[in-house]
Design a protein around this nucleic acid. Sequence first.
DNA 1: GCGATTTGTTACGCAGTCGTGACGTGCGTA
DNA 2: TACGCACGTCACGACTGCGTAACAAATCGC
Lengths: 229, 229
Amino acid sequence: MSAPKLLLVEDDTALAELVEYRFRGEGYDVRTTDDGDEALLLAAEDTPDLVLLDWMIGGTSGIEVCRRLRRNKSTAHVPIIILTARSDEDDRVRGLETGADDYVTKPFSPRELIARVGAVLRRVRPALAGETITVGDLALDPTAHRVTRSGQAIKIGPTEFRLLRHFMEHPGRVFSRGQLLDAVWGSGSDIELRTVDVHIRRLRQAIAIPGAPDPVRTVRSAGYALEGV
Amino acid sequence: MSAPKLLLVEDDTALAELVEYRFRGEGYDVRTTDDGDEALLLAAEDTPDLVLLDWMIGGTSGIEVCRRLRRNKSTAHVPIIILTARSDEDDRVRGLETGADDYVTKPFSPRELIARVGAVLRRVRPALAGETITVGDLALDPTAHRVTRSGQAIKIGPTEFRLLRHFMEHPGRVFSRGQLLDAVWGSGSDIELRTVDVHIRRLRQAIAIPGAPDPVRTVRSAGYALEGV
DNA sequence: GCGATTTGTTACGCAGTCGTGACGTGCGTA
DNA sequence: TACGCACGTCACGACTGCGTAACAAATCGC
């Protein structure tokens, strides 16, 4: 459940197989395609946590896939790592400008790629890398599925857990109800916006400490945010 | 069951005999072959706990055996130690990238190899190295197949033993029913997910102490975890 | 200050999940 | 052959957590 989902877009079948099984060995959930259009389709129906994107692929070019991933709402913030045979500086610049998060030049060792993926995930979504996130006096351990506040264990439901994790992955940032529904409930869920309010309340109740201020901030007509450090 | 099973793939007969003899002396269960294809066959029919793989063998090359071991689901996570006469750096890199866990250059002393095997097993599967694992007031002795809680011996079935061992190898971590089936029953077993529940119950019943809290934690809609330290 | 909008809070029915006991089967042993 | 043991499956019941609606409170624009 907590396995990070990778989408590998690569038309060198041998390389794709190698990368795929190495990442599986590392506990990742990998899906592979050699076609740019199919990549966009796969990404849309089940948002991956990170995209490994070959620069030169059939169908659509890498830069175009990158651009269109960014344009789509549900995949706009998914980190992308570009794989390219050309060590051309232009490519690198264009890739990063298009919104890629990192850039690996072929030939690369799977070990290096795994390290890069780990680094990007740790930076963007620490919980996916299996690391305990800490915000203020809150701590969330994704592998143990456990939340503590000031060291004290907290009883929390599954939805509240995911909600809190999302907040803790982006501390201080304000999310609208719609954004929270997309991120926590999954995009395409037919849930009333007001339902978020109820879960916010349940979350507040769960992590409340008498006397201490509420770490969940309401931003009127905008949404909610977790009080940053 | 408690003796770690090694698969030795080596075409130097004299060396193979020596290694086999020494490891048997250390309490390992060793099977030997000089052929890559046969190695894959042996590994498939009875998954070993570790593979010692000569880099240059007849039939299939070492790197190919390595790759195909990883591709097969049941052997994908078996640790591999490469034995090679060439101290070539390229080999070393390629071996590790293909998924080997360690690398020993010929000529090596049996003593060194035994140490390396022990180190890898301890890292990957502590219980296989014959070490008693302790989590809280639970202790599990893999060689004696015995479990104690607060010093008191506990009667426990084979499946519950493997289940508890897996939990104790990763204390605190939450496992889904599917993950537990893969880890305890073996991947590819056609077992109902709910069957896990029943064995969890039997495990709980076996290790229960009246008055003491249940060390097995249910994480709703996620799985089960053993209460860490 | 007053109406309108937004948010907090509570209660409730429902679906999904989990615990538990019972049952049938296969296998090794006495 | 009879027995015991461990296993996998099922069915039932209890419970938890979910989503929604309805009402109360707070905040904003005027």
